[in-house]
Design a protein around this nucleic acid. Structure first.
Length: 645
RNA sequence: GCCGGCGUAGCUCAGGGGUAGAGCAGCUGAUUCGUAAUCAGCAGGUCCUCGGUUCAAAUCCGAGCGCCGGCUCCA
């Protein structure tokens, strides 16, 4: 049994702890506090309060409090696991976005069947309301302590720390290396649930041991937990893999292969709508449409650096003794188009756009629905420009992104990724490219984060992460700055002074992968697409077969007006037809019974269940046309009709 | 690729060493019925694939393929 150290960091006798200091300010609030904040740093309530420092309570409701709670719950889980599974070694257990996890090494991996017992033990620990006691040891002592327990992961963590003294937390007989802070006691955990188990490499490195990870989440009260679990349920309902099958959009087949999408009629029309919009918008913004082949000689991939840096993601084949590679990116053909004639500085920028199908060999464990596939279509473009045009071009792309994200109702965040370990090009080029991107980011006035070492192998990039209706984030658009490929392919233009200069290349996508984007869209809208995207916009429903003739005429009139309309003339009750149209999330039903036949009208029903007053075909079409105008088009029309334009 | 779970009818799922079941969907018939399921009958399966154990395998074992949750990677 572990005995408490004499050098506790708890407030020494006579001095005020942070909790006591807060209580002196406002006893009621101090009771609710889970930690304290002093000069922006989080402290345990038991920590000594520096008398001159400003002290604020960290209260339930703010993100930092949830983080403390979840981190503490991770410790409680570790205590429970140690108690239930003797010999288990603990690794790390942080709070994460929606909960927490803890990694363990045990003689066997944990399974979902283990979770109820761990939960029960945790509930017991929480009921025991043990205090979290903070301490600070010198590293040697901590190292010996954990080494003595056989906790080799903790020893490794201590060895990597530079501080002379390390934080130690204890609750019950569980002692952990930890920065803190923690809840005052285990009883403050209001509600928690263990969610899943998974394998995870020690420190995320596939060459190191595979540990057994348990995920869970925690909240201050049961209602919040229930709300969170309901959100997980909602996400399951919106899962694009499920909706894709139910709405007959696409399918996957074991016979075809993992990560290879088959588009059905309803999914293909959705793609076509989006792709048409893309073509139109790219042409409007000064891009040219181009297209390259699927198969290019391996030699070319060697020249571009893809063979050295991207080979494990590529498929290769041989044709008449010559080695070929299937394209994982579209840039090579675009560069050869550029090279096909002498370019003047006046020609630049050149913007080559291709809806290009690329194949990438993803590891078998990572393919996932439409969001991670092995063949996908990029709305790809390569902008070749003069160095002095780079910033403006990047801003142009960002403007494009802003418009398109608004069109679908997505919010987004920006990230700048810098040079990775595996990369080509000179330090100077990387510096110039990174500089160009960050200048454009600053000029855009939007905030952004920096991801060190996360760039493409040929250049740094700006990633756009959109946020969907369920507040999840997805990477779609990316802008990459490349000084290297123009070099390798010896691209140049004739400058004003007659000299040959090197153009800069920007790789960029707006939606990224059409497949992934549609997957995201399906979940964003929960399958209920806005009228302009809906594969089937109207379903004509008859009450009895006396309305069949009128129904056929209505459907035909709608089709002639360019509306995607189907008719359900089956000998079924209206309720059954409504139900099916509802399940397929068809935005409008046109209901025809004896009354409508008599008056040559129709009654429109919305997905919400609301009925519009009976109306004639012309009025209905006008109504649909108005609503179905794709929003960007509507915007353009408004702009065009402004006086003085 | 790695760790764990899983693969039974088109879909959702039950069964679990003695030769396969339900609901929905499909087909046929009856019903003409106004806003989320009309009734009845019929048909539908190499129980993912290959190999092994066994008198006997959908069931147990091994390998492969695929799916799911993660790690890693990324559009």
């Amino acid at each position: 049994m572990f005995v408490l150290a004499p050098e506790m960091t708890n407030a020494p006798a006579g001095a005020l702890s942070a909790g006591q200091a807060l209580a002196a300010q406002d006893p009621k609030t101090a009771k609710r506090a889970v930690a304290a904040r002093s000069n922006g740093r989080l402290l345990d309530l038991s920590a000594p309060a520096a008398p001159e420092a400003e002290l604020q309570p960290v209260l339930p409701g703010e993100p930092a409090a949830l983080e403390v709670l979840r981190h503490s719950t991770a410790h409680i889980m570790a205590e429970a696991v140690r108690a239930l599974f003797p010999g288990v070694k603990v690794a790390i257990g942080p709070a994460i976005q929606d909960g927490f996890y803890y990694d363990f090494a045990y003689e066997r991996p944990f399974t979902p069947e283990d979770l109820p017992a761990i939960e029960a033990k945790m509930a017991q620990i929480i009921k025991g309301n043990q205090p979290f006691q903070a301490d600070s040891w010198d590293r040697q002592r901590a190292r010996e302590f954990f080494a003595g327990r056989g906790e080799q992961f903790k020893v490794e963590l201590i060895d990597d720390l530079s501080e002379e003294r390390v934080g130690i937390y204890r609750q019950g007989d569980f002692v952990d290396l930890c920065r803190g802070p923690h809840l005052p006691s285990t009883g403050r955990v209001g509600a928690f649930k263990l969610l899943s188990v998974a394998g995870a490499y020690w420190r995320g490195d596939e060459k190191r041991p595979m540990l057994s990870r348990i995920y869970g989440t925690a909240f201050f009260d049961k209602k919040e937990l229930a709300r969170h679990l309901a959100l997980i349920e909602e996400a399951k309902k919106r899962d694009h893999r499920k909706l894709g099958r139910e709405l007959e959009l696409f399918s996957f087949h074991e016979e075809i292969g993992a990560g290879l999408v088959v588009w059905h009629p309803r999914g293909m029309i959705l793609r076509t709508i989006i792709e048409d919009l893309e073509r139109r918008e790219h042409l409007r913004r000064g891009y040219d449409m181009v297209s390259g082949p699927q198969l290019l000689k391996r030699e070319l991939w060697e020249r571009s650096g893809h063979f050295d840096n991207y080979r494990e993601n590529m498929y290769f084949t041989q044709v008449d003794e010559v080695a070929y590679g299937i394209k994982p990116m579209n840039c090579l053909a675009h560069m050869l188009i550029y090279k096909s004639k002498v370019r003047s500085y006046r020609d630049l920028p050149l913007r080559y756009f291709e809806l290009g199908l690329v194949h990438r060999h993803e590891k078998s464990g990572v393919v996932h629905g439409l969001t991670r596939v092995r063949a996908f279509t990029q709305d790809d473009a390569h902008i070749l420009c003069r160095p002095d045009q780079v910033e403006e071009e990047i801003l142009g792309v960002m403007d494009f992104v802003t418009d398109v994200m608004a069109l679908f109702g997505f919010d987004y965040t920006l990230e700048l990724s810098t040079r990775p370990e595996k990369s080509i090009g000179s330090d100077q080029d990387w510096e110039r490219a990174t500089e160009a991107l960050s200048k454009a980011l600053q000029a855009s006035g939007r905030e952004y984060e920096i991801n060190e070492g996360d760039g493409a192998f040929y250049g740094p990039k700006i990633d756009v992460k959109l946020t969907d209706a369920l507040k999840r984030s997805w990477q779609c658009a990316t802008i990459q700055c490349d000084f290297t490929l123009p070099e390798r392919f010896d691209l140049h233009y004739v400058d004003a002074d007659g000299g040959h200069k090197r153009p800069v290349m920007l790789h960029r996508v707006i939606l990224g992968s059409i497949e992934r984007f549609i997957g995201v869209l399906i979940e964003h809208y929960g399958g209920a697409f806005p009228l302009w995207l809906a594969p089937e916009q109207v379903r004509v429903l008859t009450v009895t077969n006396r309305a069949d003739d009128w129904a056929r005429r209505v459907q035909q009139a709608l089709k002639e007006a360019g509306i995607r309309a189907e008719a359900d003339l089956r000998n079924e009750k209206l309720g059954a037809k409504v139900r099916e149209a509802q399940l397929m999330k068809v935005p409008y039903m046109a209901i025809l019974g004896d009354r409508e036949v008599e008056e040559r009208r129709l009654t429109a029903r919305l997905l919400s269940g609301q009925n519009l007053p009976a109306q004639g075909i012309k009025d209905f079409i006008a109504h649909l046309k108005q609503e179905a105008t794709e929003p960007l088009m509507r915007l353009r029309r408004q702009e065009a009709s402004k006086p003085g334009v």
